[in-house]
Nucleic acid binder design. Structure first.
Length: 761
RNA sequence: CGCGAGGUAGAGCAGCGGUAGCUCGUCGGGCUCAUAACCCGAAGGUCAUAGGUUCGAACCCUAUCCUCGCAACCA
């Protein structure tokens, strides 16, 4: 009770809602995991708020910058602009087909977004909220460009794969930085990149640690999901770093030039003892002299995509306001606005830590909640577009919705199942069998059937009209159903307000279940038989039947309102059957039992959902396996082809002096033991006798050699390589390997056995 | 390694100090208006493991094991 009052009180203070769903990255199709993670819960929440007649705007749009887009363009042999122009409309249409009703679906390539992001950057920069640092980064002289991590390839220091990217080795999964690659090569020219100094703007998150601790870990400790608070705590405790805001890249939003003279902001303040690294009057002490002005020399820089993407929510709101002749500002400025970000868990850091810091600095409101979902697995494995283990929204639409196969109601079936298994508190799993079960036993058998038998009976026994309800013969069963309708409405409302969509949906279905039970208890078909004598139904029998069907019809109307946020297409269908207008769907009508007027004639029933047969899900399972196999064979061919290319053009590494070479201590050793490292596909744990000691070395060669085959072999070892931990095992050195054009590895060993520990020169 | 989340009936999940619960599936029964539907009943769990706190623990504490995730723009 107390809780309800507080809630009601808080609701009163909310002037308007701004709901965002994560901006999908326009480098490819999006799968149903994305849908379940962000778009569907957001849509349900928005539809509910709109039924409540609240002032709400639902924004989203394509995220079209960043390095992955030009890379995708390279893959498809086209331009970055062509990529986004291809995927943006497809994604937008997919959402529409699945009933995700954004008020605006914008895109970050729009000029309005560029202006908005640039202005945002300028405001922060002019206030001194950004830091500037110079660092050395890889640069390709042939193409005159700084290289993003993804544009650098080389040999992985962990597993020896010579196609590792500058940020990660896709073979062994290690996280890398370009500096760690052996023989780095620019993917643009094939040349070895050089190091060159470059200047970048940084967002000093470390300055805001106190604010974040207070705001997330204290204020929102209880009303945000524990997974969200937990992850934020993890990151904050891990130490917040300044994050680069700018990048040397061609594709993205140009830095806005500062007008007029350069402003020199000298941040060099005297470092007093005992005051190190803390702030003085809110100003960070640094020893660097910074020039915050953006000049012509910075023309080649763009905003890092993480900085511009969330601003996309703001520019989308602006565009919506223009289109609808509204004012966008209160949605981002007014304290009585409730801002809610719907995202997946991989986005928590951006929406709970980074973007809020940006908003606070800019002077905007902060999100009220960030109900992030965990991940949804698929048939026992992680969903992954690159491995072909996914169901794209586009595929689902083509297979189930468009093909005269159930039509729009199949969109609702997907919405139903994805909500029912929504990963709200932990990872969950999509299976086609589960999909079939949810549809057949809950939507068809319980919900659809209740509606259908109600309508059929009403046409048979009540001549197709809403019968009268006689209060004089009301019994406990009737009363209980009326109470159930009211209670379910309250529960569903409370659950929706708390972002518990899975539970809310269960409650709706449960009400339908109660309806079936009610009808079973009343058995009007039996009454009709028993009370009919000589073809004439007794007045008592008629009354009993009328009461039952009257309530069942009112229940159907209530179910229509309650199911509407989840299954909008079904709700419309029900409205047509009941011949009511959309206004009946307003939430304030839920719980009432006079929604359908007595005497009103209703349409013939049509089935709301169809059964899904075993063959259909078998087809889908087969399709998934085939797609995955096809994608994997394709990528394997393409990488091995690339490997060959890289091998052929792999240039000689930059010249080094003798001293550099002399730093490397190479010795001959003998492998005396080898075993597979558990839970690592590619790693072998080797014991190598170096004469003077026995070393443990972890090497990424398990795919090339069986442990028992290599024991006793002599190998060449880099013995003074810094130790590195892999899978929890310290590796003290590196075995030298030669790779042939087929990608096969060979040991480098002396012509004939020599003593262990012998130096290699 | 560390951090975060989780490990509860065949499957999927809820419960987070007081007699183990829900949905689906399985088995038996009832009913026939309904898309072989609906209704009722039953079987099925030493709540990951081991200690501890407590009158009492799935729930709190400690340790261990296992799964997933962790600032790459992949919700």
């Amino acid at each position: 009770m107390d809780n309800n009052n507080t809630k009601a009180h808080q609701e009163k203070k909310i002037g308007r809602y701004l709901i965002t769903a994560a901006l999908p990255y326009a480098n490819g199709l999006k799968h149903i995991g994305h849908l379940a993670g962000a778009y569907l819960p957001a849509d349900i929440y928005v539809r509910y708020l709109k039924a409540q007649k609240r002032d709400v705007v639902f924004v989203c749009g394509s995220d079209e910058h960043g390095t992955a887009i030009p890379i995708q363009a390279m893959k498809e042999g086209t331009t970055a602009q062509a990529i986004i122009d291809k995927y943006h409309p497809i994604i937008e249409q997919n959402f529409k087909d699945l009933g995700i009703a954004f008020d605006i679906y914008h895109r970050t390539s729009a000029p309005l977004h560029h202006e908005t992001a640039q202005e945002f950057f300028s405001v922060l920069n002019n206030k001194g909220d950004l830091e500037i640092k110079e660092s050395e980064q890889f640069y390709d002289e042939a193409t005159n460009t700084f290289l993003a991590d993804r544009y650098i390839k080389g040999t992985c220091p962990v597993c020896g794969n010579n196609n590792a990217y500058g940020d990660q080795c896709e073979k062994c999964g290690s996280t890398l930085s370009p500096e760690m690659l052996i023989n780095p090569v620019s993917t643009l020219s094939g040349n070895a990149p050089i190091k060159k100094a470059t200047k970048h703007w940084y967002l000093p998150l470390n300055r805001h640690e106190d604010f974040l601790r207070e705001w997330i870990l204290k204020e929102h400790k209880d009303d945000w999901r524990s997974t969200v608070v937990g992850q934020c705590k993890s990151w904050i405790d891990g130490g917040l770093q300044a994050r680069a805001v700018t990048r040397d890249l061609d594709w993205g939003i140009r830095l806005p030039l500062t007008e007029g003279k350069e402003q020199h902001t000298v941040d060099r303040l005297p470092l007093t003892e005992g005051m190190d690294s803390e702030t003085v009057n809110g100003k960070q002490l640094t020893e660097t002299t910074t020039t915050t002005a953006v000049t012509q020399s910075d023309a080649g820089k763009v905003l890092y995509v993480w900085f511009d993407a969330p601003i996309g929510y703001i520019s989308a709101t602006k565009q919506w306001a223009i289109d609808n002749d509204k004012d966008w500002k209160p949605y981002w400025n007014a304290p009585d606005t409730k801002l809610v970000h719907f995202i997946g868990k991989d986005n928590i850091v951006f929406h709970c830590i980074i973007f809020p810091v940006m908003l606070k600095l800019y002077g905007d409101i902060l999100p009220t909640n960030v109900p992030a979902n965990e991940f949804m697995n698929l048939e026992g494995d992680k969903m992954s577009t690159s491995r072909g283990w996914s169901i794209e929204m586009d595929d689902y639409i083509n297979d189930w919705i468009k093909k005269d196969n159930g039509g729009e109601s199949m969109a609702d079936v997907l919405r139903y199942y994805l909500t029912q298994i929504a990963p709200e508190t932990k990872d969950s799993e999509f299976t086609w069998k589960g999909f079939q079960d949810a549809n057949n036993s809950e939507l068809v058998n319980i919900f659809g059937n209740l509606v259908n038998r109600t309508f059929v009976l009403m046409h048979k026994l009540c001549s197709g009209k809403v019968p009268v309800f006689s209060n004089d013969i009301i019994d406990d069963t009737d009363k209980q159903l009326i109470i159930d309708i009211k209670q379910s409405t309250q529960k569903v409302t409370a659950l929706l307000e708390a972002y518990k969509f899975r539970d809310a949906l269960f409650e709706v279905i449960d009400l339908a279940r109660k309806g079936n039970k009610y009808m079973q208890d009343k058995e009007p078909w039996m009454v009709a038989k028993r009370q009919t004598v000589d073809g004439i139904l007794s007045p008592e029998g008629k009354k009993s039947i009328d009461n039952c069907l009257h309530l069942c019809l009112q229940l159907t109307a209530n179910l229509t309102i309650l199911i509407n946020p989840f299954l909008p297409f079904t709700a419309s269908k029900l409205c047509r059957m009941m011949k009511v207008v959309d206004r009946m769907l307003e939430w304030k009508n839920a719980g009432k039992i006079d929604l359908l007027k007595v005497g009103y004639s209703l349409r013939e029933p049509q089935l709301l959902f169809r059964k899904i047969e075993n063959e259909e899900i078998d087809t889908q399972l087969l399709k998934l396996r085939e797609k995955s196999a096809w994608v994997n064979s394709k990528t394997e061919t393409s990488t091995s082809m690339e490997e060959v290319t890289v091998n052929e053009i792999a240039p000689v590494a930059p010249e080094i002096v003798f001293d550099d070479f002399a730093k490397i201590d190479l010795r001959v050793g003998t492998i005396i033991a080898a075993e597979k490292v558990p839970k690592a596909d590619k790693l072998l744990k080797l014991s190598v006798d170096l004469g003077f000691e026995i070393r443990t070395i972890v090497s990424g060669i398990a795919l090339h050699f069986a442990p028992e085959d290599i024991v006793g072999k002599q190998v060449t070892v880099v013995v003074n390589l810094a130790p590195r931990k892999m899978r929890g095992i310290d590796s003290n050195g590196m075995i030298l390997m030669a790779e042939d054009t087929q990608g096969k590895l060979h040991f480098i060993n002396p012509e004939q056995d020599i003593s262990n520990g012998a130096s290699v020169k």
